[in-house]
Design a protein around this nucleic acid. Structure first.
Lengths: 156, 156
DNA sequence: TATTGTTATACTCTATAACTATA
DNA sequence: TATAGTTATAGAGTATAACAATA
């Protein structure tokens, strides 16, 4: 019994019913993400990893911008960035034009750590994909752009 | 450039290449799970929510079994269960045959809370699915059993 | 005076070590 | 003596409030 009833616009069979697709996709996406996360131990705390990832994705940022992006209070970012700096994963550069401001960027070591984690996850996931049949892999490949669309990855 | 090269067994085009599918699926699954998590605020800490979910999924458990399942130290479970009990989401029942042991189970309120969270996520996700074209929804539906297979949901 | 970031402090979460009750 | 769980205590992590430096 789907938690969200099918709308009048769908008109599919039970398996393509929006409510059914919703609940199944919610469960498998959550589960897959958890399995992936389990492959990616970094020695960093969740906030440290999240901040490092954001810095890499967005490029050099001020501490304030980073705090806002991480939805975290300014003192927490001070702390997180200090830890990342201690580990040599990010560097701070004081802003020349406004000396209150500091920008943080990933170091080569920081980028390498993130890349290594992604690779470890990819190795695990590729092995799981290897266990699928050709037909299954094709159906999965055919749905990838739908997942991109769903998560906004088609318009970054 | 995919992090994991295509194997000799695939022979697909670039879009169905295992390395490409791997990286794209990793990113979109992670992203979808994060978006879902953002819809599901419960007022519980991550460990409390995780423990409550495990108790619901597995049925009544001893504290020790729960600690092991959550990969957490025994004193942490004592604490987590105490908080959940304070909120009326779980109950403890002392074991009749071994009075050192206590079992925990979800209350009706605990089950209702979990259900409400799932429903909130489903409402959000169903709205996103509603933005897809019929063709996209069909391709997604056709890949659901693959995701189940991938995450072990086909053999629970 | 407003803004950026830090320091001071308190609270939550989780761990290890020592303990209690039961087997 | 061994086991299930709790209490004592310490170390992260993050928040609010007060502060310092700069604009």
């Amino acid at each position: 019994m789907p938690s969200v009833p099918a709308t009048a616009t769908t008109g599919g069979t039970d398996a393509t019913d929006v409510g059914t697709v919703t609940a199944r996709l919610r469960v498998s996406a959550t589960r897959l993400a958890r399995l992936l996360r389990r492959q990616g131990d970094t020695g960093l705390s969740p906030s440290q990893l999240s901040a490092l990832t954001s810095i890499e994705n967005h490029g050099p940022m001020t501490l304030g911008a980073l705090a806002e992006h991480e939805r975290v209070a300014p003192p927490s970012i001070t702390n997180v960035v200090a830890k990342l700096e201690d580990k040599g994963l990010v560097t701070r550069s004081p802003c020349a034009s406004d000396r209150r401001v500091a920008h943080v960027s990933t170091t080569a070591a920081g980028a390498a750590l993130l890349d290594e984690v992604r690779q470890r996850k990819d190795v695990w996931l590729a092995a799981r994909l290897g266990e699928l049949s050709d037909d299954e892999r094709e159906r999965l490949a055919a749905a990838l752009d739908v997942l991109d669309h769903l998560t906004g990855l088609d318009r970054p």
